[in-house]
Amino acid sequence: MPDGRRFGSYEVTVLIDGVYKAPIEHLAHASSETVRDAAVAAWAEPTVDMDVNLFLLRGPDGVTLVDAGTGPFWGPQLGLGRAALAGAGVQPEDVKRVLLTHLHGDHALGLFADDGAYFPKAEIVVPKPDLDFFGKSALKETVPTYRRGGFDIAARLLATYGERVKPVPGGPVLPEIEAIAMPGHTPGHFGYLIGKGAERLVLWGDLVHAPALQLDDPDFCFIYDADAAQGAASRRAIFARAAEERWVASGGHVSGFVHVERAGDVWRFTRA
């Protein structure tokens, strides 16, 4: 069981749900197909492998999660977050709330059991702009097939958790936890800023998938992004703010805790 780190009133632990292997052909670029094609040709492996994380927060009023992993729905190489929670001594009924960064399967499918709610007592905090978009079934046919999963998740979330679904527009969601809009990956993609004082933690969801590429060129992304240019702008803005304010950072596909530093015209992660 990894050790937790304290940020304000919360002890935060990274739990690994597994490793997602994104086909290198799914790489995209917000401004240059030529740059994208060169990067694909130069990549030494058929996939870009990335950790899939969820986060356990222990605070004054109990257990909160940021994201929930895949559950058993994406195959045996993923869904390990449930065992990690059990290893931390957390049972499903202990979870008081889940803060979702966005409505994609590797972040939200872990909310569901085969026949109902996996977390029977939890409130689900969801970005309102994401729920507003994915909650409109008429929009499903307007997006590519590989980006339609959010519509099914939104419908299942509302049917399963009902009044325990709490859409939030951004801003403070709990004492010492603020939702920050980071749109692009999805229309309402959020990060969460946790703690107070000099050391705070930003959990930025899917702002970053492939640091080896996106730190040198934030225009790199994957086809899963709803708006590649908006996602790149969010990356640049959050990298700059994290560096200036010396936030500790992590996310759905970042290994451990990092600091963001500007290195000339590019960015670097250092271990925090």
Rank of each mutant, 00 (worst) to 15 (best):
E244T: 08
L85G: 02
F119I: 09
E141G: 14
S31A: 13
G116H: 09
A263N: 15
V19A: 11
E176I: 06
F190A: 07
G4P: 09
R200L: 05
D115R: 12
I223V: 07
L57E: 04
L78C: 11
H189F: 03
A233C: 06
D206W: 00
A154F: 02
V40K: 14
Q214N: 04
T270D: 05
E25P: 13
A249F: 04
A83N: 13
M50L: 14
P167R: 12
M1L: 08
V260G: 03
L109G: 05
R246A: 14
V173F: 14
W267T: 08
E141N: 12
V258E: 04
T160E: 03
L65K: 00
T101I: 03
A198V: 13
R241H: 06
E11Q: 13
V208C: 08
G81N: 04
D132P: 03
R97M: 11
P175F: 01
L80I: 09
D132M: 01
F222N: 09
R236C: 05
G135R: 08
A117P: 15
R262D: 06
E176M: 09
G75T: 01
T270E: 08
P169Y: 02
R156T: 13
T13L: 10
L100S: 00
Y224K: 12
I238S: 11
V126K: 01
I223K: 15
D49M: 13
S31M: 10
N53K: 02
H253S: 05
E45A: 06
R97I: 03
Y118E: 15
T270C: 10
A249E: 09
I24R: 14
Y224I: 15
P211H: 01
A242Y: 00
G71I: 00
Y146C: 11
P92C: 12
G195E: 00
I16G: 09
F222A: 06
G252C: 03
D51V: 12
G110T: 03
A159D: 13
T70R: 03
E244L: 10
G59Q: 05
G75S: 02
V266T: 15
H107D: 13
E178D: 13
G116K: 05
L139M: 10
F151H: 12
I16T: 10
D94N: 09
S32F: 02
H107A: 07
Y161A: 04
G81I: 01
P211N: 02
T13F: 02
V35P: 13
V14E: 03
G116R: 13
P167C: 09
L54H: 04
T13Q: 08
D106R: 05
V95Q: 05
K21G: 10
S9Q: 07
A240D: 07
A88V: 06
V126M: 09
A38M: 10
A233N: 04
A232I: 01
V98A: 00
G150Y: 01
A86K: 11
L203E: 02
G71E: 02
R82S: 07
L57H: 03
P183L: 03
L203S: 01
S250L: 11
I223F: 08
D219T: 15
A39K: 06
D206C: 00
A198E: 14
V208Q: 00
W247Q: 12
A42W: 13
V35Y: 04
I238A: 11
L80T: 10
M1Q: 10
S9R: 13
T64P: 10
A88H: 14
T145E: 11
M50S: 14
P76A: 08
A232Q: 02
W247F: 12
L103T: 03
K96L: 13
T270G: 09
